[in-house]
Structure formats: C-alpha cells, structure tokens
Design a protein around this nucleic acid. Structure first.
Lengths: 367, 367
DNA sequence: CTGAAAGCGCTAACAC
DNA sequence: GTGTTAGCGCTTTCAG
C-alpha cells in the first residue's frame, strides 16, 4: 500500500488542476465531459478516496452526526479477549455447554439503545449524514463525548448520559438534541415520550376491570425521572378512580428483575393484591415469577402490568401487558430535529413528544 | 451561538501562541503550570472544542474506525415519520392495542449486528478510537461506504456487504478487516468462525443418541457461504457415523421462520423424521411450530437443532439446542486486528477464528 | 470551462 | 518553555 493518493496526484496524472479534480467530484456538470471522464478514470486508477478531514476542514461541516449513549453497564466487565496474544492457533473451533435455565439474556437498556441507534442511522442516511457513536463510561482524563463533539455537525445524547455543564459547553459549538427524559427548561431540542399520560391510561384500563382486592405499585429508583413520571400518571389515575392513594401498597425496586421478584415476595406475605402495576417490564416479570412460585396465578389471581415493551415481555407466559417505547422513532426524530437545527440555527428550541403504545396482553386481563 | 472558538481565539485571549494552546491540550507537561492553567481557563471560558477535521488533517490520522453492515432489510420500509410536519401538536400521547399473537419480533440479523457493534464499540474505546457506522443500502450515486472510508483510519466490513472491487479500492487507502464469512485467499485481515466444525460436532451429539427413524436436514439459501459450510459439517458427521447421505432427507429454506414451517409440513407428509438439523434458529423454530400444530412432540417424537443462538431460541418452549455465534467477540477481535494493522501496516494478513458455542437445550434431548 | 491562490484549524518541527 | 512557520488535502472565489 503506497502513500495514499491525493487530489494532487490525481490532478497531475490527469493533466488538470486540483480545482478541476475537486469539481469533478462535487459538481460534475461544471466540467466538460471529456475532462470529467479522464479525471474519473484517473481516480479509479489511483484508488483515490477524498480525505474526510480535509474536506471537513475546507467545507466547515463534516456530514457526520454523533450519538452518545449512557454506558452499557454489562459489557464493561466482559471477559478479556486478546486475539493477538501468543498461542492463538490452539483455540478450539467450538465449546459445548449444557444449559437448562436461561442465562445471558441481554440487558433491556442495550436493546433499547440498539433500536434508537437503528432509527437514527436510518434517518441519518436519508438526510445524507453518517453516524458516529460513543458510549458513556468513566474514562478518567479522556472525554469521549467531547472527542465526538469535535468531529460532528450535531450531537444527540441520551438524557443524563452527559453532565449538564459538559453538555452546555458542547452546545456552544454544535447543536445538541436530548433524547428521552424530561424536557427541562433548557435551550436544547428534545424528543421525549409522555410517560405520565400513558401510565395513567394503562392504570385506567386496569382499574376499569372492577374486582375486589388491593392495588399495589412497584416503582423504580428514587432518582429516575422516568420513574417519577410513571408514578405521577399512576397516582393521577388512581385518584381519578375515586380511590385513596393510602389504599395502594407502594414498593420500590431498582428496575431489575430481581428487585421485582423480591417486591412480590413482600407483597405475598401481606396477602397478594388483585392488581400490580410495575414501573417497568423487568420488575413485572420478576414479580410474576415470584407469584408463580408461590402458587399465585397471573392473571387469574393477580393482574400485572409492566412498562417499556421489551421483547421478553412479549415472549413470557403469560404475555405481559405493557407500554412500548417508540425507540426507532426516537432515533429518527432526533436526527430530524438536528437536521432542522443545522439549517435554521436560530429557530426556537423544540420538543417533540412521541406517542407511546399501550399493548394489552394476557397478564392484565382476567379471563 | 457565536462563531465557534478556534485555537487562535484561545491563544489571543490567553496571551500565548497557538502552539502553546495546542501543547496544553496534547502534552500538558511540556507547558509551565501557570501558563497551562491560564490556557485551560480560557478554553472553558470560550467553550473551545478542537476541530476533529483540522486535527485529523494535521495528524494524518482521525482516531476513528468504521464499521459497515449489510442492510437491515426491515427498517428500510419503516413507516414515514416527519416530526417537523405541520399539525404536530395534535399527536396523541399514546395509542392502545390489544395483542394476543406476537408480532414485531426483531430480525435476527439486526440482533446479530447489534452485538457485533457493541463489541466493536467496547474495544474501540479501550484502544482509544471512536466508531463510525454505516449500513449498506442501494444508494444510487451515493457511496456511503467510500464516504466512511475517507473519514476513518481503518474499516471493518461484514462479509459481502461491499462489492469486491469497491473493497479492493478502499483497501488501498486504509486497512480493512472482513468479519464473519469465509476467509478467502485475499489480502485482508479476517475474523471468522468455524461453521463446519461446530455443525459437525452438533450433529455428532445428536446422532450419538441412537434412535430409530429418519434424519432430515433443513438448509439455507444456495448462495449462502455460511449455509454451505454448515452443510459440509453436517454431511461430514453423517458420513462419519456410517450413515449414507442418501438416507437423509434434505430440504432447503431461506433462513426465515416461515420457510422452516413450510419445510416441516413437507416433512410431516412423508412421515416425520426422528431428527431435524436446521441451518439456523429461525427455521428450526418455524419447524417446531409446524410439528406442534400437527401434534408431533419435540423432543419426544422429533429432536430439533438450530444455529446462531438468537434470543428466541433460549426463550422458546422447548428451549432450542443451537450453536451460538460469538458476536461480541467478533466485533472486539475485528478492532484488535485493525489496531494491530495500523501499528504494523506490513504484517502478513491474519485470520482469527473464534470458537462457536454449542448450547444443548431441551429440543434435542429425548427425556 | 479551467487554473491560481487563499484559506479552513490544527500539529509538529525548528528556532529562540 | 514558548513562538514562528510550514504544511496536512480539499473547496472555493476570482480571474482568465
């Protein structure tokens, strides 16, 4: 692989100036066909690929959008892998494992991000951008997000993946869109969902099926904005139904399956409720497991709902009633907002609210 | 948002030269502490973020690695979304849907790519790179992959996502690593898995459980290299067991669940076999559905195996015996190869073969 | 229609 | 330690 070809190489070889080479690539019609052909031939002959850096510098735009996520948690402590270490040739072609219980189911957060990413990529492509991605990690000294910010025309960040002050700084350089999470009174563009409204409606649907017995709510961590909004929606619907919040058993989990399991066990001790509304799917699924173990049937004895719409919710038995996040559209909308902002830098900050999808399945319906 | 700050702005404001500003950012120790502090203060005061383009141009490296995928198929025809259209305020907060059957389960290809991506991102971060991603689509005129190639230091492409001639051209500019897919005698670095060996072993495991009745194989599309390798492995194990290939009923599907379903129905007409080895999970799952509908029990009446290790394989009943791709590690290994190649451009092309994981679950074991 | 030349913002010698 | 300066490879006026 010789030195990379540049415009100069192409120009010299084709007997034209570098300006002409550039024109052939950017505004082909401005060049006489004969010249154009000659240049194009030289281009492929030399395997010339324009430098994005040079281009970006001259054009003052990169054609790249950035997407920054909070950490994947799990993958961090992935087992070491070093394919370049010595002794590689002895690695086996396969391993065999007997497995009964199901381990290693992906984190819901990951799945969430995967879909957002897919949506963002699709829309970026439609708008003629490419995508650069980064994941938030504790990288002492290294500021990955700033690194990305320096290379892109616009940045999308998931709520709370970047400290406020850092984000403010980056926003001085390029437009920023914040995804999912409460639209605070800041000056960024936002794309969010209405957790409270959807949770209220879900709760209404469940309460509409009149049946005696207690109501329980299984909330998320105290510091989760999403969790808080879901609780607000739940509380509103309960009040609306003429019930006193004091009659509701309220427990708190940490959004994990295990915490849902534990909460349900607590519930069982005091006598299982007729309805359990959980702040996310994982906890709901954990609770269902616990109920099952205790011989309590879902939905016959207790009806359960989740929130998020992860795949496991659809595959579990009974299938879980839940609220699905419009993940693909979150990604797409973010790119659209960025694209708009790039065209009209001074437009007022805008918040796009995407609809959630309440999916009613078996877990919440008494037969 | 005023004009973006540059080194010149910072230098002037801090009363130093641009070289000093640059040093403060790249080799802080080479600058006297007092000066350094002053510059740093100015940097945050101005909200200065270095331009990746300028830096890339001057350094002759971008610090970015590219990952290029074949198309997502499904997302292409996603419903239109235009959050900037008029009348947005009337969009509802939620919709409600009653759902019994499970629709909308993600494509396995996507899940595969998601995990590869995650592995690549993790490793890229560890090595101090950021990741740029692109998806192959029929984009007449626009060459997304070349676009990416111009902006990165190295490129990872999934097998057959880029035409050979295009890839060859790009490889003249930057190192290329090909992921998954047969390592042909080309000059790229490769990271692959040994489909044939793993399939042979899986087949051996299944055949070891002696029982009367026919054996059936459900293959993939004729043009799939993976499919071909899996068939080879299967055929080898069958021969090894002293069985004649003529005794095996061979059907061909297209890797979809539907084609597996159809194939099983064909099988049932001629009398269900005792063993069905499928070339991927989707087809295996489809076949199991068909068997169930026909009152044929798995694994009691027919034992079934898949390939790929998608999540649905673990969640289905009976849980599916399969071979899991080391997707995360594929991504990580690719980055490691690229990183090595960047350091030693002239090293011999290298192929890393990652172990597959045979996961034995209920579907293949007679109780 | 084509060429000459001036940057784009930063790094890295090389002087001082 | 710090400043000067010459590029890095490309786009884009502005002449011709």
């Amino acid at each position: 692989m010789s030195r990379k070809a540049t415009v100069y190489d192409v120009a010299e070889r084709a007997g034209v100036s570098i300006a002409t080479v550039s024109r052939v690539l950017r505004q082909p019609d401005a060049v006489r066909p004969a010249t154009r052909e000659r240049v194009l031939d030289t281009v492929s002959e030399l395997g010339y690929v324009p430098s994005g850096s040079a281009r970006g510098l001259a054009e003052r735009r990169t054609g790249v959008l950035g997407l920054y996520f909070p950490g994947f948690d799990a993958s961090e402590d992935a087992p070491a892998l070093d394919v370049l270490a010595e002794g590689q040739p002895t690695r086996p072609s396969f391993t065999v494992e007997q497995r009964t219980a199901d381990a290693g189911v992906p984190q819901p957060t990951m799945l969430f991000l995967d879909e957002v990413l897919r949506g963002a990529e699709l829309e970026a492509w439609k708008q003629g951008f490419v995508l650069m991605i980064g994941v938030g990690r504790d990288d002492p000294g290294r500021e990955t997000v700033r690194d990305i910010a320096g290379r892109v025309d616009g940045l999308m960040v998931l709520a709370r993946s970047v400290p406020d002050d850092v984000l403010a700084r980056l926003a001085r350089r390029i437009p920023v869109v914040v995804l999912s999470g409460p639209a605070r009174g800041d000056s960024y563009d936002h794309v969010t969902v209405d957790n409270a409204e959807a949770m209220a409606e879900l709760t209404r649907l469940v309460l509409a099926q009149a049946d005696p017995g207690g109501i329980a709510y299984l909330g998320g961590p105290a510091d989760s904005p999403d969790g808080a909004q879901r609780w607000d929606g739940f509380a509103a619907a309960v009040a609306e139904a003429g019930l006193a919040l004091d009659d509701v058993t309220v427990l708190r989990g940490d959004f994990t399956r295990a915490s849902g399991h534990a909460a349900a066990q607590t519930l069982i001790v005091g006598g299982a409720p007729a309805v359990l509304v959980a702040a996310n799917d994982q906890m709901a699924l954990g609770a269902i497991d616990a109920f099952r173990s205790a011989g309590i049937r879902v939905p016959e004895d207790v009806r359960v709902t989740g929130f998020d719409g992860i795949e496991a919710a659809a595959l579990s038995r009974p299938a879980l009633t839940t609220v699905r996040q419009p993940m693909i559209d979150l990604g797409r909308a973010a790119v659209q907002l960025l694209s708009r902002r790039l065209e009209r830098p001074d437009a007022d900050p805008m918040t796009v609210r995407l609809p959630l999808q309440i999916i009613v399945r078996e877990s919440s319906q008494r037969p």
